[in-house]
Amino acid sequence: MPGTPMLDASAAGVYVIAPTPFHDDGRVDEASTDRMTDFFMEAGCTGITALGMMGEAPKLEHAEALAIATRIIRRASIPVVVGVSAPGFAAMRALARPAMDAGAAGVMIAPPSSLRTDDQIVGYYAGAIEAIGADIPVVIQDYPLAIGVVMTPGVIRRIVQANPSCVMLKHEDWPGLEKISQLRGFQADGSMRPISILCGNGGLFLDFEMERGADGAMTGYAFPDMLADVVRLSREGRRDAAHDLFDAHLPLIRYEQQPNIGLAVRKYVLKRRGILASDAQRKPGGSLSAAARAEVDYLLTRVARGDARAGKLAA
């Protein structure tokens, strides 16, 4: 498999969730995709995750999804994880194998919302890994707020112990700080092998997640350079500096966390930063009202008081 090294349990830093750039008419914007990929690397990201939930993957045809993932993989000099979650294992394999052949570092799999019991969840991951191949590194996506599937620390441990190809957890439980502590406790007592833990939720709890033992972030906030700095400062033990920088962005992070319009906010800010030519989403998708755009613009002026990067945006 060509490309960057395969994903493993040592992965750390910021694996930014890439939105899918579209033209106003819904066509995939390849130029913005390239510009976005370059920006993520320049911003200090250590990896990119394509076709995640905020990448509008369900709105893409299979050929489009593979083309987008391949384009990012071939342009990036950092590892690229590809989201391959699908209702059936056949569709999952049909995306996972070609993505890995193109040079992906691993794939991300979320459980379907139909799972109800611990045994069903554990069995699902066993079946998914059997379908795509045990040679492909897997990120377990734990996002109960969106998916409705609750994975306890014990269930995650069962999945990790039974499947050596599971090397990373995308932690998006909320509240979830105690879950991180418990998982790291399993590693300390030897009952679970080490895994990478990267956190989502727009970075909303990243400051304390790092202190609980997370290795970084896997999310798509429109200032991934800030996320990278917070992770670095936290790992350097510069607690106050990490929190000060994080706190400067917190009002905008909070605003972006609103259900249904979060991606619209994120794309709008990335457009303001000159990364995306359009903030369009493929239909059906939310959009910002004039009042909402004005609120985001105001928040950016507030963020600029603590982070000059926000002050560089054109009016």
Rank of each mutant, 00 (worst) to 15 (best):
V149H: 02
G103F: 05
G47H: 05
I73A: 05
G44R: 11
V265W: 00
D225I: 02
H171Y: 09
L233V: 02
D29H: 04
L169F: 09
R158M: 05
A104C: 04
R235C: 00
N260M: 15
D215Y: 04
L227F: 10
A57D: 12
A188T: 07
V80P: 08
E236Y: 04
P153R: 01
A188Y: 00
R254A: 14
G127R: 09
M92H: 06
A290M: 13
T20A: 02
D207A: 15
T152E: 04
M108C: 03
N201L: 15
N260H: 15
V167Y: 02
G237Y: 03
P164L: 02
R239M: 11
W174L: 15
D119F: 08
P259Y: 06
M210L: 10
Y268D: 06
E172K: 06
G306D: 00
L288D: 10
K283T: 14
L95V: 07
Q281D: 03
S287P: 10
A264H: 05
A217F: 07
M1A: 13
P2Q: 11
T219Y: 13
P164V: 05
D189I: 04
V139M: 00
V122G: 03
R254T: 14
I73Q: 03
Q257E: 15
V28C: 08
V230Q: 02
G44T: 08
M53I: 14
L206A: 01
I78T: 06
R293W: 09
L245P: 00
T20L: 01
V160E: 09
Q281F: 06
A63R: 14
D38T: 14
G148M: 05
G148F: 08
V14N: 11
A104D: 06
C45Y: 11
E64M: 05
T20K: 06
T117N: 00
A146K: 13
L300F: 02
G311Y: 03
A304K: 01
G55R: 02
R97V: 15
M41T: 15
S191W: 02
F223M: 05
M36I: 11
M192E: 00
A242H: 05
E211H: 13
A90L: 14
A104R: 06
Q258F: 12
V138D: 00
D297P: 07
L177P: 09
A291R: 13
A104W: 04
G52P: 08
G203R: 05
I195Y: 06
Q281N: 05
F186I: 02
M54W: 12
S114N: 12
Y125V: 01
M53T: 15
V82F: 07
I68V: 13
A128F: 05
T4N: 12
A31V: 14
Y15L: 10
A76I: 09
A291T: 13
H249Y: 01
G148L: 03
P111S: 11
D240E: 15
G202P: 07
R193H: 05
P21C: 00
L252P: 03
A222H: 09
V269E: 04
H23A: 12
R232F: 06
G185D: 07
R309K: 10
Q258W: 13
N163V: 02
I129F: 03
M108A: 10
D118V: 12
A162P: 01
Y298L: 15
V303N: 01
P2W: 07
V80D: 07
E61Q: 14
